[in-house]
Simulated scan of single mutants.
Amino acid sequence: MPEAGHADAAASFDPLRPKLMRVAYRMLGSVADAEDVVQEAFIRWMGAGRSEVREPEAFLRRTVTRLCLDQLKSARRQRETYVGPWLPDPVVEEEEEEDVTLPLMLALERLSPLERAAFLLHDVFGLGFEEVAASIQRDPAACRQLAARARIHVREARPRFQVEKQRGIELAGAFFAASRSGDMKALGAMLAADVSVHADGGGKRPAAMQPIFGFDAVMKVHENLAALFRKDGSKLIRTGFVNGLPGFITLEADDELQTTALEIEDGKVVAIYVMRNPDKLRHLH
């Protein structure tokens, strides 16, 4: 009977797993933590009185949301001691994910856990405030206020100038070619005047300890990097969308993966996000 019960639980849970992963990852910004939360939700689902649950998806989404809220409390403490800039784990896809881009995920980091949950559940996943209230155990009026406060904080992080998908991929390929070959003229033509670079090495691999701002500073960094790329090599694995932004995966000289995501406005690169922390790249292998 236990094996039959396990199979029954899996049969009803597995179709919902991708949706639950989307909620958990957008709440936590970590693929590994999201997988742990979803697995814990499955364990709880196995022990639940499933015949009495009228809406399994709503039940499991609430379970995942509450587990994420608990996780965010410890995650916030960990971020305070993180070495260098923190970026969410890169999720690389063939198609653009338009609901939550990397800049928006960074903006979510500035919210309280409850604000983050209310905003994601209502504004991103389209749930009514009654369902949001049931998920985060607050009344609907409080959830409206939480979502409204969150909206003010993240409004600027919403993409204002959507780059056409194919054009975005072409720019990512051109950026890779120019940055690795040292074609500074071609690279400079792609960058906005106020361009910035944000590199997450997590103390595990060399990376700038602070974001780099401004055209001249970013160009200088890439001049220095190009000399290293010419000497040691940098292999393009694939282009795609990294957390909703055009970008690419590379294999670097130390035999570790790296992702680069480009935020583009008016045809110019306004921000470059580089993930070098091997712990956050493990799922891409």
Rank of each mutant, 00 (worst) to 15 (best):
F213Q: 13
H283I: 00
R138L: 14
R149V: 08
G173R: 06
E170M: 02
I152V: 11
M105S: 14
G214Y: 11
A107M: 08
A192D: 11
K204P: 00
D194N: 15
V274R: 02
A7Y: 14
A226E: 06
F215E: 05
Q78S: 09
V31C: 03
F215L: 15
D255P: 13
P246Q: 01
R22C: 09
P140H: 05
A48N: 01
S179E: 11
H6L: 10
Q39G: 13
E57Y: 15
L121G: 04
E52L: 15
V31R: 00
F176T: 14
E93K: 08
V91I: 03
I136A: 08
L228E: 04
M190R: 13
L187D: 07
R167S: 09
A75N: 04
R155C: 03
G244Y: 02
A207M: 02
L281A: 04
E52A: 14
V53Q: 01
R79K: 14
C68S: 04
A193L: 09
A150I: 10
D14Y: 15
W86P: 03
F119E: 03
G240A: 00
R61L: 06
T81G: 03
W45E: 02
P206W: 15
Q39L: 04
E3P: 07
R149I: 05
R116T: 00
L121K: 04
Q39S: 13
A48G: 01
L106Q: 13
M209I: 10
F213R: 15
I272T: 07
Q210M: 12
L108A: 05
C68Q: 00
L114W: 02
M190Q: 05
L111G: 06
E223G: 11
D89V: 06
